[in-house]
Design a protein around this nucleic acid. Structure first.
Length: 398
DNA sequence: AATTGCGGGCAGA
DNA sequence: TCTGCCCGCAATT
C-alpha cells in the first residue's frame, strides 16, 4: 500500500512536473515561475517542442541553434522570434563518392546569403540552391525565445522538412578554409606540399578541420530525442556526438523532442566539426590548440580538430575518406564503372591526391583528432565539454 | 565580413 | 489583429 501511495505521489509529481514544463505557451502572459529543473541546451530543437533553460545558460542567452535561424520581427520585444532558413544544397543534387550530400549552412545575413548562393558546390562546382524550410504550415519553422526571471523559455513551432545544415562553427571553419585557399599557394604547390608531407609522415597533413557538411546514409543519426535520454551523470567521453548530436543531456524524462526522427534524418549531414568558437559553446575546446587564444582564427597551418577521421593511410577499402570524397572539383570522380559509390573507396586516398582539389585535400586530414575529454557538470553552462586532440583515427567512427 | 537583435513598414489572412 | 517578410541600423564577433 505504501508503495502504491508512493507511486501515486510520484505520478502526481510527474504529472505536475510535466504540466509545469509543458502547459505553457510562449505567448502566455504568465509563464511558470517555479521550475524544479531546467533543461539542457538543445542544439537541434525540432517539432513542436518547448524547453525551459536556466538564464545562466550561455547558449540559451544567445538564442543559439544549430539550425540556421534568422531573426524575425514579431513586433514583440519580449519574445524573440526566429525563423529557419533551411539548408543550402547542391543544385545538381550531387553526391560525394561515398554517397553523402552537400548540406551547407545558409548565411544568416540576406546579403551574405545571396553572395553564398552565387558560389559553387564544393563537391561538383555546380550551382548551390537554397532549400527553404517549409515545416510550419508551409512557412519556415519558427523558434521563440523569452527571458523571464531566472529562466529562458524556448518554444519551437513546426518540424524541419529538410536536412540539418552544417553548424555555425563548421560553416565558419569552411569559410576560413576558403579564405586560406585563396590566400595561399596555387593548388599545384599545395598538392606538392601534401605529397611531401605524406611521404614524410605517412599521413595526411593536418591543417584545418574540414567543415564541409556531408550526409552519410550509412551514418545512423540518433533520434532527435536521443540526447534527452542521456542522464547528466552518464556522459562518457564518447565520440557519438561527433555525428552532430551535441551531447548535452536534458533532465531525465523531460525531453520534448519529436518522438520520431523525420524521414530525412537518415541522410542527415554528418557534423564532423564539434568545435565552437566561444567558451559558452558546448564544444569549445578550452584547451586552445595554440594556447594563445587564437582558437577562432587559426592559421591554415595550425592544428585543429574535428570528429571525423581519415582512414589510416592508405585509405581502407569501402570508405573513401570524407575529404577525398569531397575533394572532387569536377563532380563525380571518374571511376571504374560498376562500383557503387560506397565501393569506390579503395585507393581513394591516392586517387584523391592525383586528381582532386588539393585545397580540400590539404584541409582534410585530422578528422577524428578531437575527443571530448571532459563533460559538462552542473547546469552545463559553466563547464562546457572540452575537446582536445588527439585520438587515433581508428577510434573514431564515421 | 558576418552575426545578432531591434524596430519600422507593408501585405495578406 | 496576427503573422510573415522585407528593409535598414547599430552593436558585436
Amino acid at each position: 500500500m505504501l508503495k502504491g501511495a508512493d507511486d501515486s505521489v510520484m505520478e502526481q509529481d510527474s504529472a505536475s512536473r510535466h504540466g509545469e514544463m509543458m502547459s505553457w505557451d510562449i505567448n502566455d502572459i504568465k509563464l511558470p515561475q517555479h521550475v524544479s529543473q531546467t533543461d539542457w541546451f538543445q542544439e537541434w530543437p525540432d517539432s513542436y517542442v518547448k524547453h525551459i533553460y536556466s538564464s545562466e545558460d550561455k547558449n540559451a542567452q544567445r538564442h543559439h541553434s544549430s539550425w540556421a535561424m534568422r531573426n524575425t520581427n514579431n513586433h514583440n520585444s519580449r519574445i524573440l522570434k526566429k525563423s529557419c532558413l533551411g539548408v543550402v544544397v547542391c543544385g545538381n543534387n550531387c553526391s560525394t563518392l561515398d554517397g553523402r550530400k552537400i548540406y551547407l549552412r545558409p548565411a544568416i545575413c540576406d546579403k551574405a546569403r545571396q553572395k553564398q548562393q552565387r558560389k559553387c558546390c564544393p563537391n561538383c562546382n555546380g550551382p548551390l540552391r537554397l532549400l527553404s524550410c517549409r515545416g510550419h504550415g508551409g512557412y519556415p519553422v519558427t523558434n521563440f525565445w523569452r527571458h523571464e526571471g531566472q529562466f529562458i523559455f524556448f518554444q519551437s513551432k513546426g518540424a524541419h522538412d529538410h536536412p540539418r545544415p552544417e553548424t555555425k562553427p563548421e560553416a565558419e571553419a569552411r569559410r576560413s578554409i576558403q579564405k586560406a585557399k585563396t590566400a595561399f599557394s596555387p593548388p599545384s604547390l599545395r598538392l606538392k606540399r601534401v605529397q611531401e608531407i605524406e611521404s614524410l609522415t605517412g599521413a595526411m597533413p593536418t591543417q584545418e578541420p574540414l567543415p564541409l557538411l556531408l550526409s552519410n546514409p550509412d551514418v545512423h543519426m540518433p533520434p532527435a530525442n536521443f540526447r534527452g535520454h542521456l542522464s547528466k551523470s552518464s556522459h562518457e567521453p564518447t565520440l557519438s556526438s561527433c555525428s552532430g548530436q551535441f551531447p548535452y543531456p536534458r533532465t531525465a524524462g523531460e525531453d520534448g523532442g519529436p518522438k520520431e526522427a523525420p524521414t530525412w534524418s537518415r541522410s542527415l549531414p554528418q557534423h564532423i566539426l564539434p568545435m565552437t568558437k566561444s567558451g559558452h559553446d558546448p564544444f569549445r575546446s578550452d584547451a586552445d590548440p595554440l594556447g594563445d587564444g587564437s582558437y577562432r582564427e587559426k592559421s591554415p597551418l595550425t592544428f585543429s580538430g574535428s570528429c571525423l577521421s581519415l582512414p589510416p593511410y592508405p585509405a581502407p577499402q569501402g570508405g573513401l575518406s570524407p575529404m577525398a570524397a569531397v575533394a572532387q572539383p569536377h563532380g563525380q570522380l571518374s571511376l571504374p564503372p560498376g562500383g557503387s559509390e560506397e565501393d569506390r573507396g579503395g585507393g581513394g586516398h591516392q586517387a584523391c591526391l592525383s586528381c582532386c582539389n588539393s585545397d580540400v585535400v590539404f584541409n582534410l586530414t585530422h578528422y577524428g583528432d578531437w575527443v571530448q575529454t571532459s563533460l559538462p557538470s552542473g547546469n552545463g553552462s559553466d563547464s562546457p565539454p572540452l575537446w582536445q586532440h588527439k585520438v587515433l583515427p581508428q577510434q573514431v567512427s564515421l
